[in-house]
Computed example of a mutant assay.
Amino acid sequence: MRKLCFFVIITLVLSGCVQKKIIDDINIISVQGYDTHEDEDTVRGTFVIPVYEGDKSISNTSFSAVASQSKAVKRKVEQKSSDPMVSGSVEVVLFGKELAEKGVFDIVDTLERDPSIGANLIMAVVDGTAKEMLEQNLGNRGTGTYLYNLIYNNVRRRELPRSNLHLFLFSYFSKGKDPFLPYINLEEDKVNIKGVAIFKDEKVVSYVDDEEMFFFKALMENFKNGSYTFKVEGEYVTIFSLTLKRKYEIEHAMKDPVVHIEVVLDGHIREFSGKVMDPKTIAKIEEKFSELIDEKTEKLLREFQEKAVDPIGIGLLAKTQTKSFDEKAWNEAYKRATFHVNSRVIISETGVVE
């Protein structure tokens, strides 16, 4: 009986220590954006709060402030808010292009240290300013949900490689791999996936445009779905339901690296502008697509090499295959690396065009 009374008392005491927050009495941040400011020592932050209307629709209210550190931006913003602002539901964080090219680690470090923010937080670089994008009323379920679903859908079903706070930090702190983030822009009242922003340490130094995203993802990860359209002997063909697998091997990692990449792609033909779809035509399509993959991926790898960035993680592969890996020695060896991509394309279905 004494044990039961003790348990009840402890339960009541502990429950009284929990800080309760009534949802109607707080402002829940769904998106945060950061930009440079006129004063080089300050940063502008823009926070978006979803507002739930009586007709069940959602609008957005944005708050903006300037401070010397990203940690201080939220405090400045709260000075304009009638209710406390909480970060537990932040879905997306945006960086303006100018800020991203200047460096974002101070902000990313703040996000990492905030226990209310999850590691799956999506981040992206904006062609322009984050403030301009976040002042728009995007989507019918709130700007945060709209941006999250846009990026997630393009990762899951299109050609955008996976990225989030956890993966960014892993690449940032890894020896032999550089981070990347989605690169987006505003087109009237919609947001467009423009490509991928490549980082060297904390700064964006290069961009992969949307025409090259498929080949970038082919180097980055095994995936399903997606599609690609190209020309074969003057006719357009679209291949979809792509299943891609790739394998890396590296020789002479710390001297004159030779990187071999094998890509196997299985897909279906959705559209073909020609009149005849026979085995000979299918063979030509497979051959042409294979040549494109080899050419485009090798070109991307050489461009990364020239800019001394490695978002693919070739250096990470070298590290796993080298007992006494030396980062400085690898950086010099990477400049001399040669790349050989060998792809094989299999058309398993031709659908209604047959």
Rank of each mutant, 00 (worst) to 15 (best):
E295K: 15
G351I: 01
V205G: 00
K102W: 00
K280P: 04
L160R: 04
Q69P: 00
K56W: 07
V263I: 15
K217M: 10
V309N: 03
M213I: 06
Q305T: 08
S62Q: 12
N331M: 12
R336Q: 14
D35C: 00
L147M: 14
N27S: 08
E306H: 12
S116N: 12
Y236I: 03
K255A: 13
V13K: 04
F339N: 04
T350P: 07
D35R: 00
D266M: 09
D25M: 13
F105T: 08
F304L: 04
K275N: 14
N149H: 07
F240S: 11
K175D: 13
P115M: 07
I347L: 12
V196K: 01
K255D: 15
M277G: 07
L138F: 05
L14D: 08
I117V: 14
A318V: 05
L150Q: 09
V352Y: 06
F47R: 02
N342C: 02
D55K: 08
D127G: 02
S206R: 05
L138P: 09
K194Y: 07
V353W: 09
K247Q: 14
R302I: 14
V8R: 05
F304D: 01
T42K: 11
K288M: 12
H252C: 07
P115V: 04
T243E: 15
A333F: 06
K284D: 12
R75W: 02
Q19S: 13
E262D: 13
S171K: 12
E303P: 01
S81Y: 07
N222E: 14
K335Y: 09
V205F: 02
K80W: 03
F7A: 15
C17L: 15
